[in-house]
Design a protein around this nucleic acid. Structure first.
Lengths: 193, 193
DNA sequence: GAATTTATGATACACTCTATATCATATCTT
DNA sequence: AAGATATGATATAGAGTGTATCATAAATTC
């Protein structure tokens, strides 16, 4: 959706917008119904009310559509985690993270199902240096910085995923506190054993 | 491999053992070369030096073979994590875990690639009560027990995965200490904020 | 509003992979 | 050595992917 939005700055054929929106909504709906892997392009086209061949005029394959749909959400999550660098208030960052996930629960649920964690990790990998350099000074003595960074990312995504799959049984404020106590605090330099 | 080993107590046709071993080795080799999803049954049969149809005489699909191959490793990891219940020495358990992963690095690497985490989580889910009841009294005040359990499992598997993918840059002893400091200690009741 | 451009629908096609079936052959068990 | 059975080779049916074509519908542009 994002890559296409850029193109739409120049060409805004309403048919294109309509088709891609229909495909995006079909993917979201079907992903919430069953396993992503079991969804065929024929299913997507049918659910979107489009011809089969039309799909390939917009996306090369199923993953291309998924990436397009999730691009905005991934970027938002990455950005939400990034600023929590030297600003002391990690709990606030955590609350913001869970609030965003709550506001975009459907898309985030789609994102965090399946192997999507790797998708986010890959995205983080691109800016790895950025996060590492920011987070390194915060790692405790016994913990190698790379491990601290990796741990924060994977544990945060796993916690987010659990919360969404459990229908968000706690408030973002509670989750922010848990996030801090369980994930952030143990990776702070201040937490010298 | 395990399910079949049981059968072999009664029927031990050498051809069967040979075929299934070849398939298992082919799967392991190919999984280390490329993405599990991209491997076809034709690839497996070819790499194993077997006819295509022969595969289906032993396994219903690719996942059945994978489960068979990993059954022993999964059971071992689950057991390694289970005893760390009330025996105070979590670091020792951690060291044992990373030693086991080191000794069976290839298989563990295969296991923890892709969505295998979910596989282990599902296995844990079966005995969820067992782990929860054991671990619950260890959760700190602010942290719901279910979250503590889920966090321990996912974070431990992620840490294990990172270590294996990085070619095991630290010793099992070091990893055991990290495991305790990063994952166990923050989920102990003693760690009241 | 008319002309032009372009996206879509429908269909056909080649290709890959799965899963099953069959039968002659090779290999194992007893 | 004889009988049992696993394998190889091959054929087949079905599902899914990805591309191509052409008439039609819908958009943009003037």
């Amino acid at each position: 959706m994002a890559t296409t939005l850029i193109d739409q700055a120049q060409q805004t054929d309403r048919r294109i917008v309509r088709t891609q929106t229909a495909l995006a909504e079909a993917l979201i709906a079907l992903t919430l119904e069953r396993e992503y892997e079991t969804i065929t392009i024929r299913d997507l086209a049918a659910r979107a009310g489009l011809g089969y061949a039309t799909f390939f005029r917009h996306y090369s394959d199923k993953d291309a559509l998924l990436n397009d749909v999730l691009e905005v959400v991934i970027a938002a999550i990455v950005d939400l985690l990034a600023p929590s660098v030297e600003q002391a208030d990690h709990t606030t960052t955590g609350i913001a993270l869970f609030r965003y996930a709550q506001a975009h629960a459907t898309l985030c649920r789609v994102l965090l199902r399946g192997r999507a964690t790797n998708l986010v990790l890959a995205r983080f990998g691109i800016d790895a240096l950025r996060y590492t350099t920011h987070w390194v000074p915060l790692a405790p003595p016994g913990i190698p910085p790379e491990i601290a960074v990796h741990h924060r990312l994977t544990a945060t995504l796993a916690l987010l995923q659990w919360w969404l799959e459990q229908e968000m049984p706690y408030t973002p404020e509670q989750m922010g506190a848990i996030y801090y106590q369980l994930i952030i605090q143990p990776t702070l330099a201040a937490n010298a054993e």
